[in-house]
């Protein structure tokens, strides 16, 4: 199992510097792959529509996920509800490449997350701060993403989560060795994980940005803040010209430090998704599962 966990962390390393796109049909999956997505997230409804529809949101139909697996050669991810290990078992059975135990869906358990160490298939989980990230890692997550606020097209929460995590990592790094025990207590995580962050100045797994990315500039902002890659959910297929926007966001992630390239990429992309501000939404998905 330990080797499998290493291999799962390493798959996330291969995705670095890339864009993972939400898709709902094989056609969208092919557009995403063609535009340069390093993986796709197969789901029945993108977060903006989940938000609009309300009600309970669950794992997608495995048949629909299969059709996307057949359409593309890049890794395919899918979401299960927080704590819903039976949904995760089903996704493992169809050989999904990565499971997102996601706050975008309705949580199935308001106390426990999935014991991800019991699975061979890798998991990515959302986090708002360092404590959440390390708790998910101790449960077996092999990749972390910011929670952001999915389906809003508003980047403010992803920025907040990334800055918070970076600040807490910097603080741990600066602590004296004899202060690490108390830090572990405060973060509610094991001493070993705290020690790792203290020594290495980073999470022990890859960390992507997610939630509210809608433009090449949003992607570049998150990369400059230290994200190792970007998830784009509603931002692409809720926009006026998905293909062009997808290509532009892919290039923006590679050239996140080159303002001239970013200026070119930002031109003439058509309508961005309309978006909603965090003050206007009633449901904060980021508060699910902490």
């Amino acid at each position: 199992m330990k080797t499998q966990y290493e291999l799962n962390k390493e798959l996330a390393q291969m995705l670095k510097g890339g864009v993972i796109m939400d898709v709902t049909t094989p056609e969208q999956a092919r557009i995403a792959e063609e535009a340069g997505a390093c993986a796709v997230m197969a789901l029945e409804r993108i977060p903006a529509d989940i938000r609009a529809a309300g009600g309970v949101s669950r794992m997608s139909d495995p048949k629909m996920i299969n059709s996307i697996q057949e359409a593309v050669s890049i890794p395919v991810m899918a979401k299960c509800r927080i704590g819903h290990f039976a949904e995760a078992q089903i996704l493992e059975a169809i050989e999904i490449d990565y499971i997102d135990e996601s706050e975008v869906l309705s949580p199935a358990d308001d106390v426990y997350h999935i014991d991800k160490t019991q699975f061979k298939v890798p998991f990515v989980c959302g986090a708002k701060d360092l404590g959440e990230a390390l708790r998910r890692i101790s449960e077996g997550a092999s990749m972390i993403r910011t929670k952001g606020e999915p389906g809003t097209g508003d980047i403010v929460q992803a920025v907040r989560h990334m800055r918070k995590m970076n600040g807490e990592i910097a603080r741990l790094k600066a602590l004296r060795n004899d202060e690490l025990f108390n830090a572990a207590k405060e973060l509610q995580v094991s001493y070993e994980l705290v020690e790792y962050v203290h020594k290495n100045g980073r999470l022990p797994v890859v960390n992507f940005a997610a939630g509210g990315v809608a433009t090449p500039a949003d992607a570049a902002l998150m990369m400059q803040l230290g994200a190792e890659g970007v998830f784009v959910g509603s931002g692409i297929f809720k926009s006026g010209n998905p293909k062009k926007r997808a290509e532009a966001i892919v290039k923006a992630v590679t050239n996140f430090n080159d303002k001239k390239v970013l200026a070119e990429l930002s031109k003439d992309l058509g309508e961005a998704m309309v978006g909603i501000n965090e003050q206007e939404i009633e449901l904060l998905m980021a508060e699910r599962g902490i």
């Binding site: 390393q13 890339g18 535009a35 340069g36 390093c38 050669s73 890049i74 890794p75 590679t254 050239n255």
Partner: peptide
């Protein structure tokens, strides 16, 4: 390096 060859091929040409 390692990564996704579809992505890299596209970016090598486009960039």
């Amino acid at each position: 390096p390692g990564g996704e060859s579809t992505v890299q091929t596209r970016l090598i040409r486009d960039l």
